[in-house]
Design a binder for these strands. Structure first.
Length: 101
DNA sequence: AGACTGACGATCC
DNA sequence: GGGATCGCCAGTC
């Protein structure tokens, strides 16, 4: 069971990701003091829908790969002018968030 | 308690 | 750059 506190911290960070930017799980994990628990961040985000509407589509893994099976995610990001490379991954070079809240 | 899993990351080909 | 491997550490069964 993920602590509400942990989830809350994740959501706060996710909510501060600016439009047209994306963040990585590891980055968020580090920001909330769980550098090695990037997986839990993803887990927390899966619960995020239960806690309200958050831009969890702006979070990708370190390769810029989107969530497998969540095809809507790319659509949502495109709507925010996030660019993709020909492999269908997020163009981290241009869209990665600096992490400054 | 022990084994398996995962919306991940770093490294090494 | 992309795939294969291993490491991580909670969560789940």
């Amino acid at each position: 069971m993920l602590s509400d506190d942990f989830i809350e911290q994740v959501l706060v960070v996710v909510d501060s990701i600016p439009d047209g930017k994306v963040a990585t799980y590891g980055m968020i994990a580090k920001l909330i003091g769980r550098e090695k628990n990037a997986r839990l961040v993803g887990k927390a985000l899966s619960y995020a829908n239960n806690y309200g509407e958050y831009p969890c589509h702006r979070v990708v893994n370190s390769s810029g790969r989107l969530v497998v099976g969540w095809y809507k995610q790319k659509e949502l990001l495109v709507n925010e002018n996030v660019t993709f490379n020909k492999s269908g991954n997020v163009n981290l070079k241009e869209n990665l968030w600096d992490g400054d809240i």
